[in-house]
């Protein structure tokens, strides 16, 4: 563990991430005024996923971490996505 290289993310990247999150938050609000019908939820989920991915990759350092964490997080996201798909399956056919 002691020999592992620690990646230091430059401030500029953090600021870019912050700006990205703010822009996506503004889009989250703006998109509610656009009538997308059944795709309203899909749009909200896509934006939320993008925000989550940025936080995971940069703020939580996943981008610079060991592969095992990538695998674990990917599996978790896959399960979560499957749960959402199965839930919306009901809405699609109701």
């Amino acid at each position: 563990m002691e020999n592992e290289k620690h990646h230091i993310v430059p401030y500029a990247t953090h600021i870019m991430v912050l700006l990205g999150l703010i822009v996506l938050t503004v889009i989250t609000v703006l998109i509610t005024s656009v009538e997308l019908g059944a795709y309203n939820t899909t749009a909200a989920l896509i934006i939320a996923s993008l925000k989550g991915a940025i936080v995971l990759l940069y703020f939580m350092h996943l981008k610079f971490d060991h592969k095992i964490y990538w695998i674990m997080v990917s599996l978790v996201i896959a399960i979560f996505a499957a749960v959402i798909v199965v839930t919306f399956f009901d809405y699609l056919y109701r």
Partner: peptide, 10 residues
């Protein structure tokens, strides 16, 4: 509960 019949059999 009133869930869709497709979801029910799945």
């Amino acid at each position: 509960s009133g869930m869709s019949s497709t979801s029910r059999w799945v």
